[in-house]
């Protein structure tokens, strides 16, 4: 079923899917959060492509997007990452790991009082930049980056 669904989604594009869902009455407008995150962005293998996939190709660097992650992660399978946005009207946050096979790890939308902040644990294949992208209600994107060194084999690096 997935094999069929994938190209359909890609073809229709995010807005098409959303419009169809609206037309079908599946989603009430008040419930529409980030249904426009394009699932295909999770299958893109390079960072630039993944950023483009979530619409953040020209994101401006900002100190108001905060990433808390260890400088050195001993276990690349579980790297704790906290991201937060201090930019007013942030409606969505995405986390990317530059050198992972698929850089986009997650994207969340916030509404109804949810604070644009989240804590998660990601897998990292190797030392890489971790990037957080914040999207504001007016459609602007802001990005922050932090390098996390991954120690292989638990040598304590």
């Amino acid at each position: 079923m997935d094999a069929l669904r994938r190209p359909l989604l890609k073809g229709a594009g995010a807005t098409g899917t959303l419009a169809a869902a609206l037309a079908a009455g599946v989603l009430k407008p008040s419930q529409v959060l980030a249904a426009d995150i394009n699932r295909a962005a999770f299958e893109v293998k390079d960072l630039a492509g993944a950023l483009k996939g979530i619409g953040a190709a020209g994101a401006a660097e900002s100190k108001d997007v905060v990433i808390r992650a260890p400088d050195i992660a001993e276990n690349g399978a579980v790297v704790p990452v906290d991201v937060a946005s201090n930019i007013p009207n942030t409606i969505s946050l995405a986390v990317l790991v530059d050198k992972n096979p698929f850089p986009l790890t997650t994207a969340f939308d916030f509404a109804n009082g949810a604070v644009p902040e989240m804590a998660l644990r990601v897998k990292m294949g190797q030392t890489s930049l971790v990037e957080a992208v914040a999207k504001t209600a007016d459609g602007k994107f802001y990005i922050a980056k932090k390098e996390v060194k991954v120690t292989v084999g638990g040598c304590g690096g």
């Binding site: 980030a34 790890t105 997650t106 916030f110 109804n112 897998k123």
Partner: peptide
């Protein structure tokens, strides 16, 4: 994630989230 009957968070995740995922969120109000 719904709190008090309202959808507060909606997200997509890829395979790079660690096994047995842990998430932390904050909801005002």
């Amino acid at each position: 994630v719904d709190v008090g009957g309202k959808r507060v968070l909606q997200g997509q995740t890829g395979p790079a989230i660690s096994r047995n995922p842990v998430f932390g969120f904050k909801v005002k109000g």
